[in-house]
Write a protein that binds this DNA or RNA. Structure first.
Lengths: 148, 148
DNA sequence: CTCATATCGGACAATATCTATCTGATTTGA
DNA sequence: TCAAATCAGATAGATATTGTCCGATATGAG
């Protein structure tokens, strides 16, 4: 009943990138200041490219860039990009797993609760989180680089 | 971001026991009709005893029994009895894990979302779920025993 | 008193998932 | 042509989940 560390990394990464939404960031530029293992972050960024949150460019001046405004990226979108569609119980995804099938008493309850959770996650945007972050010298060092 | 199978077992178990709230159930009486591994269920029942949802009695006519009405047992209580206090993110529990400490932008967001989720889970009772369960011959076979 | 029944508690094994790394391939611009 | 980067897949290591087993203890029945 909790998000994975991967998802936590993913959110921190986007908050960081949102500081300079137009810049093309390399894996290392994001991983180092945020303390995320670079090769692990690379995997996460791939998922963002596949889900359309980021675009990527290979080669010398390549890297990753937000495809839309941080204000248009919700926590729900981020979580689903990384973990797949949210489902509180296995039987939400595959009905077969629900051993009591159609008469599973909890099924509709999970569905409702999940709906409330998803709605709430959809209210929070990366922009909101980024705006909230305090500025400190150490933090500034991380984002004070040249860019577009 | 999903409940464990253990929690799923736990809820099904309580729904089953709620059919006959005064009866003293043995592990086997609950495990067999619900298809839960008996020795695994035994562990779950221990947690319920520790959290006060069930009382237990050893020996020949021993077993487990609800300590209060199914209408007074919420999903939140059940989940917390099994999984411990709910926390969507590790940094909810141990602040040290939150690598950016006090300036973690997501911290307050998680706190709010978690609050909404907990509130929703607190709305659902075992009674509500048990009432919703359909009666079928196969199911009746499971609960049609002597007792309380 | 003895015995079968049941919970209690801990250790343990098997499995699955999560986290992280590495390697080779491909693309790109200087 | 070369260095810088992403891309894709394999794989190892760590951790969590799921499930089993066993000895200890308590209890009521005979």
């Amino acid at each position: 009943m909790r998000i994975s560390r991967e998802t936590d990394y993913a959110i921190r990464c986007l908050i960081f990138m949102a500081r300079r939404p137009l810049k093309v960031h390399t894996v290392m530029e994001v991983a180092r200041p945020r303390g995320i293992p670079p090769s692990f972050l690379a995997k996460i960024l791939q998922k963002f490219v596949k889900s359309g949150i980021l675009s990527s460019a290979r080669g010398v001046r390549g890297g990753f860039r937000l495809t839309r405004s941080p204000a248009d990226i919700t926590l729900l979108q981020v979580i689903e990009a990384v973990e797949g569609p949210i489902s509180l119980n296995d039987c939400m995804v595959e009905r077969e797993t629900c051993s009591l099938a159609s008469r599973c008493a909890a099924h509709s309850a999970w569905k409702e609760i999940q709906g409330v959770l998803a709605a709430k996650l959809g209210e929070y945007t990366i922009r909101m989180l980024a705006d909230q972050e305090e500025y400190t010298p150490a933090f500034e060092a991380g984002i004070a680089e040249e860019g577009p």
